[in-house]
Simulated scan of single mutants.
Amino acid sequence: MMYWDGGSGWAWMAFMPLLWIALIGLVVWAVARLAQHPTSRRDDTGRGPAPGETPEEVLDHRFASGEIDPETYAEMRKQLAAHRPRPR
């Protein structure tokens, strides 16, 4: 004798397309999120430059985080100042 579940199989048949649509939507959202331009925000490590951040600001952040020592910071500041265009 074959087991019959009382006719609730139609509910699963109606639910499965909705499940697939939701799954495909989630995949499309994830791909779109990952494909955003990388300079539109700082990277997850916090080391990428923010939009509009000047070289001096990047250098200041590196010095403040301890990534570079005071001598390197001073030398790089001098180099940046030497190559900065003069206002007219």
Rank of each mutant, 00 (worst) to 15 (best):
L19V: 12
A32H: 07
E71H: 11
G52N: 07
A82N: 05
W20H: 09
R47G: 02
G9D: 14
H61K: 15
I21W: 00
K78Q: 11
Q36S: 01
D5I: 03
Y73W: 12
T72N: 10
L80H: 05
W29H: 13
R77W: 07
A82E: 11
P51V: 05
Y3L: 04
D5G: 12
E75I: 14
R77N: 06
S8H: 10
D44G: 03
V31I: 15
M76Y: 08
G9N: 13
A30C: 11
L19C: 10
D69G: 14
A74R: 15
L19M: 14
P85M: 08
E53Y: 04
A11F: 07
D69S: 03
P87Q: 04
A50E: 06
G46M: 05
W4Y: 10
G52C: 09
L59A: 15
M76R: 11
A22F: 13
G48Q: 04
A32R: 13
G66W: 12
V27Q: 15
G7K: 11
A22L: 13
I21G: 01
M13C: 08
R47M: 10
R86K: 10
W20Y: 12
T72G: 09
L34F: 12
M1L: 05
R42F: 00
E56T: 12
V31L: 14
A30N: 13
G9H: 13
S40T: 03
I68G: 06
